[in-house]
Simulated assay, not measured.
Amino acid sequence: MSTTTPDSGGRPALTSAHELAAVAQELFVERGFEQTSVDDIAAAARVSRRTFFRYFSTKADVLWVESPAELATFRRLLDESTEPWREALCRSAPLALHHPAEERRWMLHRAKLLLTVPAVQEKAAVRHAEWRMIATEFVAGRGQSALVAVAAGHATLAATLGAHEYWIAHPDEDLPALHERFLRMVLAGVG
């Protein structure tokens, strides 16, 4: 997709939702979520306000740019799994949220914003419910009782959030490994 801003030299205008989201997240971390406007994001990305709204309905939506793919990957990995349900969750959840090393900064910014900005946390509830339901439905589909399935869904979400919270304070650690450790600790008590 081309942008409506002509090339004036320097950094080229951005053309993907992910790149636009990365610029927005950087500004949110630097300036504050509430203090950053859509116009600020568009200017920093060298796109028009109209282009921003082609990709996102609100500025908070930039944080969910990868969510549909992550949720689909989580569901697919669990569907393809042949291992016991705890092992499947411990392996699949970190893989579903894994991004290449060059996306580390973007991931850290997203985690900080999701866990610390009240306006973002409100919108996060919908995505968290989807994540939890995928785990719950998977465990129920493995013949576990509704009680165990619901507990496993909530435990999976809690471990995911906990791993990210810990990672924010310890960014030199490996997020997928942390995520798996959190899942193993929390899921050990389920069932």
Results as ranks from 00 to 15, higher is better:
Ser8Arg: 14
Ala88Phe: 08
Leu77Cys: 09
Phe53Cys: 02
Gln25Trp: 02
Gln35Gly: 10
Ala60Lys: 11
Gly9Glu: 13
Ala69Tyr: 00
Val65Ala: 12
Glu34Arg: 15
Ala45Cys: 04
Leu27Lys: 06
Pro6Thr: 07
Glu26Gln: 15
Trp64Phe: 14
Ala69Asn: 05
Val38Leu: 06
Phe56Leu: 04
Ala21Gln: 07
Ser57Cys: 01
Ile41His: 05
Glu34Met: 12
Ser37Leu: 08
Ala42Lys: 07
Cys90Lys: 14
Val29Gly: 14
Arg75Lys: 14
Glu83Arg: 13
Ala93Gly: 06
Leu27Gly: 11
Asp61Gln: 00
Thr36Trp: 03
Ala88Trp: 06
Ile41Asp: 06
Ser37Ile: 00
Ala45Trp: 06
Ala45Leu: 03
Leu20Ala: 13
Pro68His: 04
Glu26Gly: 14
Gly32Leu: 07
Leu78Asn: 08
Ala69Thr: 06
Ala24Phe: 01
Ser16Cys: 06
Arg46Asp: 15
Ala24Asp: 07
Thr82Lys: 14
Arg11Glu: 15
Thr36Asn: 11
Arg91Val: 13
Ile41Glu: 01
Ala44Thr: 00
Ser67Met: 14
Arg75Glu: 15
Ser48Gly: 14
Phe33Tyr: 15
Arg75Ser: 12
Phe53Val: 09
Glu19Gln: 11
Leu77Gly: 09
Glu66Trp: 06
Val47Glu: 08
Thr51Phe: 10
Ala42His: 02
Leu89Ala: 07
Ala24Leu: 00
Leu71Ala: 04
Arg86Glu: 14
Phe56Asp: 04
Pro12His: 07
Gly10Asn: 12
Glu87Thr: 11
Leu20Asp: 05
Leu14Cys: 02
Leu20Pro: 07
Thr5Leu: 14
Gly10His: 02
Trp64Tyr: 15
Pro6Arg: 15
Arg54Gly: 04
Thr15Ser: 08
Thr5Val: 15
Gly9Tyr: 10
Arg91Met: 14
Phe28Val: 03
Ser92Asn: 02
Val47Ala: 13
Arg76Lys: 05
Thr73Cys: 11
Ala60Thr: 03
Pro68Glu: 07
Glu83Trp: 09
Ala45Ser: 13
Leu95Gly: 07
Ala88Tyr: 08
Leu78Ala: 03
Leu71Ile: 10
Thr5Asn: 12
Ala60Tyr: 00
Arg50Lys: 08
Ser37Ala: 12
Ala88Leu: 11
Glu70Tyr: 00
Gln25Asn: 12
Ala43Ile: 00
Glu26Met: 03
Glu83Asn: 00
Pro84Phe: 10
Ser81Asn: 05
Arg31Phe: 05
Leu78Pro: 02
Phe53Ala: 05
Phe33Ile: 10
Arg91Cys: 08
Glu70Ala: 12
Asp40Gly: 01
Gly32Gln: 11
Leu63Ser: 11
Trp85Val: 00
Val23Ile: 09
Ala42Gly: 13
Glu87Trp: 00
Thr82Tyr: 07
Ser67Leu: 12
Ser67Lys: 09
Ser48Ile: 00
Phe56Cys: 03
Ala13Tyr: 02
Glu87Asp: 13
Leu63Lys: 06
Asp40Val: 04
Leu95His: 01
Arg76Pro: 02
Val23Asn: 10
Ala17Cys: 05
Ala24Tyr: 01
Thr5Tyr: 10
Arg54Tyr: 10
Ala22Tyr: 04
Trp85Gln: 09
Asp61Gly: 04
Asp40Pro: 05
Leu95Trp: 02
